[in-house]
Design a protein around this nucleic acid. Structure first.
Length: 425
RNA sequence: CGGGGUGUGGUGUAACGGCUAACAUGCCUGUUUUGGGUACAGGUGACUCCGGGUUCGAAUCCCGGCACCCCGACCA
């Protein structure tokens, strides 16, 4: 798209009320707008990133047999009473509201109840299992304190998948596949090299759950990491017994700050029991469904990418989630030949399916370069009087910095090259 | 929810209880410049978060509220 049509503008300074780097850069670049504490709107550039991340997750979920749907934002008091989680003494950070007729409802808090309730209508035989529904949706939590920019909000957008399996063995197989799927996702969005599967507290039905922790000082969690094996233990379950059980050696573990960008959880019959979610097995016997939950907060993930992949000039988006593949910067300054050339290249790139942001604004070179660095599109292509004279174009990778003069055709090659993920473990 | 802090043009900041609330940036005009936020000139833009109080006089002091940030607690 033409940058002149983008209503957002970059800012030199971050608002005083944002301390977190992720929010500072995302606001300065015009990706997000703060509505109130813990609540952010996604602006055009931000939505493009969000959509990219969503699509990466969707592909991985579909690969393991996930089936996408969309549960309602309003949640039923009656359904939640089955697990006793409507009670304010049990869950104290609900957003609840009243109906005109006096009834109560809640705003999406989490989805175990909704899925259990829905699937109960459709699961009756072992032939109906396993099944792996998921959705992307906004979640609302009345957190006592939101913090860290978009890392911990009161409204956030997530992906949640729930697995419904016949027995523990079947569940275990799927659970392992999800571990791989999650690592694929974090590799694909460019933080795989910093993200470690971490043993965390498991709840009623399993000793451990698994978190995916991305190492960054902006993190809220502390983990003990064995860098050789790539295995980590959350501080909350860290003790001698656990270390031994996991085959780790205390002297190899280093404590790191990290952000939980995803987690997977074995639920056993915790939800199927209260919902009486059963199926008939081959012998005609009733059995409770074995469940698991698998979540990723997309805003938090984007915030983590920004925390990890940025420098003093701005964001350095991995190509896989960048709002555009190419930032076409023309330094026409009123020179019609230059702008005509830029427009032609813009049209060619667009026709090739290469997403291009064309900075066609009448602004000075310095301002355009500063904006380009801040917004962080992977490949910058500069068209100017100088490059026109040479019959070539100038390119710069945001991640590496140096500029080179290349033939125009090379841009298409480089932009395609951007499609492969560079940062993997 | 406990503790601490901060609210001033769109944004970032300044202003002893005392002149018409200042500076930078942004935005608009003009000239200039044209490869790293160009320079100059002119202009625009603020019930100083809200409500009350003290005072001859309040952005400034006091009380109440609200909002935001940080630490902690919490975090399926």
């Amino acid at each position: 798209m033409r940058q002149s049509q983008l209503f957002t503008k970059t800012r030199k300074e971050a608002p005083a009320d944002e301390v977190a780097k992720n929010a500072q850069l995302l606001i300065r670049g015009g990706f997000i707008h703060k509505e109130m504490a813990g609540v952010y709107s996604f602006l055009p550039l931000g939505l493009r990133v969000l959509d990219k991340v969503e699509d990466i997750i969707r592909q991985e979920m579909n690969k393991v047999g996930g089936i996408e749907m969309r549960t309602a934002v309003f949640q039923s008091k009656e359904v939640w009473e089955k697990t006793n989680r409507w009670d304010d003494a049990v869950v104290d950070n609900w957003f609840k509201t009243k109906l005109k007729n006096g009834g109560e409802m809640g705003l999406s808090f989490t989805n175990e109840e909704a899925y259990s309730n829905i699937l109960k209508q459709y699961i009756s035989s072992y032939k109906d299992l396993p099944v792996y529904p998921y959705d992307f949706k906004s979640i609302f939590r009345n957190e006592a304190r939101s913090k860290s920019g978009i890392m911990r909000g009161r409204e956030f957008y997530w992906k949640a998948l729930y697995s419904f399996s016949r027995d523990e063995a079947e569940h275990a197989v799927f659970y392992e596949r999800m571990k791989t799927a999650y690592q694929n996702i974090f590799n694909a969005v460019g933080i795989g090299h910093r993200t470690y599967m971490t043993f965390a507290s498991g709840g009623t039905f399993s000793k451990f759950s698994h978190e995916f922790q991305a190492i960054t000082d902006a993190g809220e969690d502390s983990i003990h990491l064995d860098e050789n094996s790539g295995i980590a233990v959350n501080k909350e379950v860290y003790n001698d017994e656990v270390i031994t059980e996991l085959g780790l050696r205390k002297e190899n573990l280093v404590e790191k700050k990290a952000v939980e960008v995803g987690n997977i959880f074995s639920l056993g019959t915790k939800f199927s029991a209260p919902f009486d979610l059963k199926y008939k097995d081959k012998d005609g016997e009733d059995k409770l469904v074995i469940m698991g939950s698998y979540g990723i907060g997309l805003g938090r993930l984007i915030g983590t990418i920004v925390e990890i992949l940025s420098d003093e000039k701005g964001i350095i988006w991995p190509a896989s989630v960048a709002p555009f593949a190419v930032h076409l910067v023309d330094l026409a300054a009123g020179d019609n030949d230059v702008s005509a050339y830029a427009e032609k290249l813009y049209n060619e790139l667009t026709a090739c399916g290469i997403e291009t942001l064309w900075d066609d604004r009448d602004a000075r070179a310095g301002e355009k370069f500063a904006d380009s660095d801040l917004i962080g599109i992977p490949l910058r292509v500069v068209i100017s009087k100088k490059t026109l004279l040479e019959g070539k174009v100038e390119v710069k990778m945001r991640s590496t910095g140096g500029t080179t003069i290349v033939e125009k055709e090379k841009v298409f090659e480089l932009a395609r090259g951007c499609d492969t993920t560079t940062a993997t473990k």
